[in-house]
Design a protein around this nucleic acid. Structure first.
Lengths: 380, 380
DNA sequence: CCATCTTCCTTCGAAATCGAAGATAGAGCG
DNA sequence: CGCTCTATCTTCGATTTCGAAGGAAGATGG
């Protein structure tokens, strides 16, 4: 395995490296504008970063009327990040360079019901395999991180009262995963990772609500360009009471939670009750695309319920965009129903410039999000 | 009137002055810790600020085990801020020094139905009177600001679609008020001002929801210690659909808005329907305190409805505290009902450390909030 | 009361940062 | 092509900031 030495940046260098790595700047002039440092200071620090081999100059960018900028990139040899996004039955795992560009991403089957030790050790072993198979020799690992399909206490890195992860409650995930490495370790809720990853694809949108509609319903909140965690549990919308005719008890002990009607798991249950078998939320989307009316009606109803919950949040948070991701997000009726509910019921002032759209960041968005947050830890 | 020269601070001096003015620091050592500057740099800048007469040394603070700090304060002669909080039928007006300490606060009757020009000119005239009567000679006015009981677009300083301010729609309030002065002008929603003012009384609480329950229902949101505006309309909860048996049409054109059941105006209407006349929301509180059962029942129901809306927002934003202000906030059944609803329905994770309490900042909190935001503008 | 500790604040040489001026490299246009 | 314009980047002296060391003032505890 590669070395694990600390990244040799201090003071302003870290800020500049971060700005290049996150894609916020790719020339000295941009760095000066964004960082607030004087152009001369930027030149000096960039020179040093190039000398240490962390930055490289690579061709030139497009002119904006004058001399073309000399494009800066984080060196591929600056380091690697090993990141994972853990789902109920499979995980995406990947290696990123420090600017968040994936070297390799794989999806592998796993089972979180085997418990935290087994699952986390499996993740670590998978990281090792990826590093041996795809890690360029001599490039050090700088950090590891994983997304978790449940609430995570950011301070302790523990899972807290997850509804769909038996045996994981209060397990010190960050500590256990970190024992394999002497490196910064990130453990974060999966919807939050998705939100951070998506945010990179929405420049100029500083306030985002990123919905993850899969087996469960999660939501990551970006306020002022940064992930909002609150006291650790922010973004939960699955246990909001919805307006329905019937009455269903949720696993949380309250009646009529959104999750009990609009989550992928709930839709699969409802279809099963109609004699239609599905194995994964994506199967529901397939049924909708095949024009199965029962599936379409259920999905549309789910979208309406989600949309009604979002109306409250849109009026309150007044975001720039609602981004819908997760395996259900490709179901067209879901998005239309969300749109209809939000635009119909929200204040005109709140929807005036509101965009409601599906994910832009691609299937690896959550991994990019993990990379982004890890970079902060690495350069912190 | 006093002079209007620009405040002679540049660079780090402004940050330090702001930290002292906002009460975040009152000694050189604290300034060094909070600002991140070296202690020596702080000493130099503070020296300069004292020389310019903006800061003064005043006695010494309490020791924490070693030498006592020399307490720093913003000089009373550094400048004045003229601030107002406009309500439907009266306004609070005051003069503050740059650290937000009120020199004088008055409540005067007015009528926003007279239209924006008349009202704003009246505010300006009142400011002039206060300055003549209470402004120390030679102390310059540094900024003016006012709170508005309706939505304000922060970029343009215009009122946008206010529901209770006939004739004000789209009026350029900041521009008109600013024409009287060559100074920074602040125009902000009243609930937002209250939130900023309250935040000063809640140190360590970085995420706050501040409810203003008066004739209308407003909410100011503090995220990460700063006012969250979204695209300008953030914090609206009055037009959320609530779960009720009956059905009432709101002035916004939708059925069953929270405002139509739980605002002071709605309560007064409901009491009038029962043959009980009230003139102001405070009269409703008095009825509750007198044990009038109809009033108590209505107020408790309002609290329950508000609480149910807050459950959604608490799960989502996961704040440190919900602070209830406005003229209805002194009605005990309102708070109890809100507490009951929130604690019953929210996730344990979200309510674990959640405080629900009434205002701490006193009757002038909104004015202090205006002062706080104005200070940012003055030192910006 | 005196030695010791903690905290606050200042002094002073070293290092980082700034800003104005200039050098560099292209775009735009006749 | 040559002229001007604009934007990018560098050079260099002036300024600001840092950080280690030390002095000042009070707390603590015998």
């Amino acid at each position: 395995m590669s070395g694990k030495e600390r990244l040799p940046v201090r003071g302003a260098q870290g800020d500049l490296l971060r700005l290049v790595a996150t894609g916020h700047a790719e020339s000295r002039a941009q760095l000066a504008r964004i960082s607030g440092l004087a152009a001369s200071s930027v030149s000096l620090r960039v020179e040093e970063l190039i000398d240490t081999g962390l930055l490289v100059e690579e061709g030139s960018g497009t002119s904006s009327g004058g001399r073309r900028p000399r494009r800066l990139r984080v060196s591929p040899a600056a380091g690697l990040l090993a990141v994972a996004d853990l789902g109920a039955h499979h995980a995406r795992l990947g290696l990123l360079d420090l600017s968040g560009v994936p070297l390799v991403v794989e999806e592998r089957a796993c089972d979180i019901a085997l418990g935290p030790e087994a699952t986390l050790d499996w993740i670590a072993a998978s990281f090792d395999e990826l590093l041996i198979a795809h890690g360029p020799p001599g490039v050090p690992l700088r950090g590891v991180g994983t997304g978790i399909p449940g609430p995570v206490d950011p301070a302790s890195g523990r899972v807290v009262s997850p509804s769909r992860m038996p045996g994981w409650n209060n397990f010190p995930v960050a500590e256990h995963l970190g024992a394999h490495y002497d490196l910064p370790v990130l453990v974060e809720n999966d919807a939050n990772l998705l939100a951070v990853g998506e945010a990179r694809s929405w420049p100029g949108f500083d306030n985002l609500m990123v919905l993850k509609a899969g087996s469960g319903i999660g939501c990551g909140v970006i306020v002022d360009g940064r992930l909002h965690r609150g006291r650790g549990a922010a973004g939960d919308i699955s246990h909001v009471r919805v307006r329905t005719d019937s009455s269903t008890m949720c696993s949380c002990g309250h009646p009529d939670c959104l999750e009990a009607y609009a989550s992928g798991a709930a839709l699969m249950d409802a279809l099963a009750g109609l004699g239609i078998a599905t194995r994964r939320p994506a199967d529901v989307v397939a049924l909708v695309e095949d024009g199965v009316p029962e599936a379409t009606a259920l999905v549309r109803n789910a979208g309406r319920l989600i949309g009604e919950v979002l109306t409250v949040l849109v009026n309150f948070l007044n975001p720039d965009a609602i981004v819908v991701g997760g395996s259900l997000s490709t179901a067209e009726p879901l998005i239309s129903a969300i749109r209809a509910a939000v635009y119909e019921r929200c204040l005109p002032l709140a929807t005036r410039d509101l965009e409601i759209a599906v994910t832009r960041g691609g299937p690896d968005a959550a991994l990019l999000g993990a990379g982004s947050l890890l970079l902060d830890a690495v350069l912190g």
